Computed example of a mutant assay.
Amino acid sequence: MMFENPINTAISSWRWNRFFHPRGYNSPISEVLMNKAELVSAVADKAGITKAQAAAALDQVLGGIAGALRAGDKVTLVGFGTFSVANRGARTGRNPRDNKPIKIAAKKVAKFKPGKKLADEVNGKGGKKRK
């Protein structure tokens, strides 16, 4: 018996991920994603501009956030969230092949903390509107 192609339908993809995905995703909702091209298209449609203009604007916003984080600054978008840099210290990990300890170097990582309005919208509360 041959296996069903997991790409054919959302349900078969859900079943495939449920049993074979390394993190064991078990919900069809985990299949819903928005990539950069879809975000550019949505911005262009909402703002009434071309996709090229929307892509340029998005690149500038993301570049500005990345530049500020590179400089060690914190970026706060009120109602949306805060981007910041955290220092992750050096630590000892384990090589999964031979279970021997390895040294993992210290590094900086980007963090995002959602704002209250965004968190409320994600949780279906709609957020409080100010007068």
Rank of each mutant, 00 (worst) to 15 (best):
G79W: 04
V75E: 00
R70C: 09
A68V: 04
T82G: 04
T82V: 12
K100L: 11
R88A: 09
A90P: 08
D98F: 13
G93Q: 03
F83P: 00
L69F: 11
L69K: 02
V75S: 00
V75W: 00
A90F: 06
K103I: 07
K100R: 14
R70Q: 14
K100G: 01
N87L: 13
T82W: 01
D98P: 05
D73A: 09
L69M: 07
I102Y: 04
K100E: 12
K74C: 06
T76V: 15
F83N: 00
K103H: 13
A86Q: 14
G81Y: 02
D98M: 03
K100Y: 13
K103W: 07
P101R: 03
N99W: 10
N95K: 04
K100N: 11
N87E: 14
G81I: 00
A68N: 02
F80V: 12
T76E: 12
A90L: 03
V85G: 05
R70A: 15
R91L: 05
D98S: 09
G81D: 02
A90H: 07
V85Y: 07
G89F: 00
G79N: 09
G72S: 08
V85D: 02
V75K: 00
P96Q: 02
N95G: 03
I104R: 03
V78G: 01
V75F: 01
A86G: 12
N95C: 05
T76P: 00
L77A: 07
G81L: 04
R97E: 02
V85F: 09
P101T: 12
V85P: 05
G72K: 04
D73G: 06
D73K: 12
F83V: 00
R97T: 15
V75D: 00
V85W: 06
R97G: 11
R88G: 12
R88H: 15
F80K: 09
G72I: 11
S84I: 01
N87P: 11
K103F: 11
T92Y: 06
L69S: 06
G79I: 08
A71D: 15
G93T: 04
I104C: 07
K100M: 10
A90K: 08
A71I: 06
V85R: 01
F83Q: 00
P101M: 03
I104F: 11
F80C: 11
R70W: 01
G93R: 02
F80R: 08
A71V: 06
L69C: 10
R94Q: 11
R97W: 05
R91C: 07
P101Q: 05
S84Y: 01
R94K: 13
D98G: 08
G93S: 05
V78H: 03
I102G: 02
V78C: 02
I102H: 02
P101C: 05
K74D: 07
R88I: 15
A86S: 14
T92V: 15
R91G: 05
R88E: 08
